[in-house]
Every structure is written in structure tokens, then in C-alpha cells.
């Protein structure tokens, strides 16, 4: 694989071809916030908190750093007025669902996000899918998955699989950026009421 020369936050950076902006930044010690990213998993691009501004061929674009492949002469700004504004709003939107989540609170402070901007609807979940994807991609068990779509999307343990697999694993719990207890609750619920009559 060849090397690619690009610019991140004004610094010339030389990285391997095929890397994403996020990997390139991490390799040179530049921090881009992430919530749904995990190095063992396929990039997912759902939380959009890693949104950065890129410039190619005279045009600027807002892209997800965890997915955007590096290109020769790409100019990346990991912070800008636009980027910060997006991250602030995304945090405000997510924090309405997980008000006590440490990871969100820390970022909220950094980006000046107002924790009370939107009415609280605590579900303790921001649907980052780390648990779902870890179970599918690393454990290859698919014991936990998404159901429904749009505003009704949620995470559910599949009782038949969870009963066999989860008690001795629980490796997804510590991955949760909001509240691992919620995962425990959902798992218990799935096992206690496998037909969904809760």
C-alpha cells in the first residue's frame, strides 16, 4: 500500500493508503471524538459525532471521519465553527435520551452543549449499536439486535439466543457509552418475558 500525504488541522500528515480520516488522525495523535466507533468493528457512521470538515478540489464538505477514506492532498479540519455546531447539537439530541451518561456529559462540556435543550426522554440508549455489532461481528452470536425503525428503533436481546449465550459473556456491557446497566436490564427483560408481554 502506498503512502498518502494529507493535511489535518494545518499539519502535514503521511499515512497509509486505505485509512480513514479517523485512523489517520489517531495515528498522529490528533483527537476526534467518537461514540459508535470501535477498532474491532466495521465503521458504522451512526452517531456522526466524528463529523469533520474536508476540502477537496476547492470544495468543502462535512463528512464522517470514521468512514471517509484519506486522499492525496485532502485538507481536514477536525474543529471548525460548523463542526462544533453540529457536535453540540448532536450531543444535545443524544443527552435527552441518556442524561446521566458520562461520555456524553464530558463531550457536552467541551462543546458547550446545553443538557436541557430538549425534553428528557430517557431510554438510556443512543442506538450506537456497539453491543449489537460486537455480538454480530466479534462473537458472531447475534444475541442482541435492533428492532423497528425511525423514531421507534430500539435494542432488544433475542430471548432464544440470549438464554444460551449471554450470561457467560456480557462482553458488550462495558462497551456501552451510556449505561451498561440498561443493557443488563434489557437482557433480564428479554429472558424474563421472552414473548414480549411486559
Amino acid at each position: 500500500m502506498g503512502e498518502i500525504l494529507l493535511q489535518i488541522d494545518g499539519r502535514e500528515v503521511k499515512v497509509e493508503e486505505g485509512m480513514t480520516i479517523l485512523e489517520a488522525a489517531q495515528s498522529t495523535g490528533i483527537n476526534i471524538p467518537t461514540l459508535c466507533y470501535h477498532e474491532k468493528l466495521e465503521p458504522y457512521g451512526a452517531c456522526r459525532i466524528c463529523t469533520v470538515e474536508v476540502e477537496t478540489g476547492g470544495r468543502t464538505n462535512l463528512v464522517a471521519a470514521c468512514l471517509y477514506p484519506v486522499q492525496e492532498n485532502l485538507v481536514v479540519m477536525t474543529r471548525s465553527e460548523k463542526v462544533d455546531k453540529i457536535r453540540k447539537m448532536l450531543l444535545e439530541l443524544m443527552i435527552a435520551h441518556a442524561p446521566e451518561a458520562g461520555a456524553l456529559q464530558e463531550l457536552a462540556q467541551e462543546y458547550g452543549a446545553n443538557k436541557d435543550r430538549f425534553e428528557k426522554e430517557p431510554s438510556f440508549c443512543i442506538l450506537c449499536g456497539l453491543c449489537v455489532r460486537y455480538c454480530a461481528e466479534v462473537k458472531k452470536k447475534n444475541a442482541v439486535g435492533f428492532v423497528d425503525r425511525g423514531g421507534r428503533r430500539e435494542v432488544i436481546f433475542i430471548p432464544e439466543i440470549a438464554a444460551k449465550e449471554c450470561w457467560n459473556c456480557k462482553e458488550c456491557f462495558p462497551l456501552c457509552p451510556t449505561e451498561a446497566l440498561q443493557a443488563g436490564y434489557l437482557l433480564t427483560e428479554a429472558l424474563a418475558f421472552p414473548s414480549g408481554n411486559r
Binding site: 457512521g45 456522526r48 430538549f118 443512543i126 425503525r149 425511525g150 423514531g151
Partner: peptide, 22 residues
């Protein structure tokens, strides 16, 4: 319509539509 018909995967769409609709 969109809040029911989006896939619900990414935050700006799922949550943004939810709040705009409210």
C-alpha cells in the same frame, strides 16, 4: 411520515426529525 420511514440509524436524522416534529 419520515419519523416512521427513516431507518433510524443515524442521530441527526432520527433525533433531528423527532425534535422538529415535536
Amino acid at each position: 411520515f419520515l419519523t416512521d420511514e427513516s431507518c433510524g440509524k443515524c442521530v441527526p436524522c432520527r433525533e433531528g426529525i423527532r425534535q422538529m416534529l415535536k
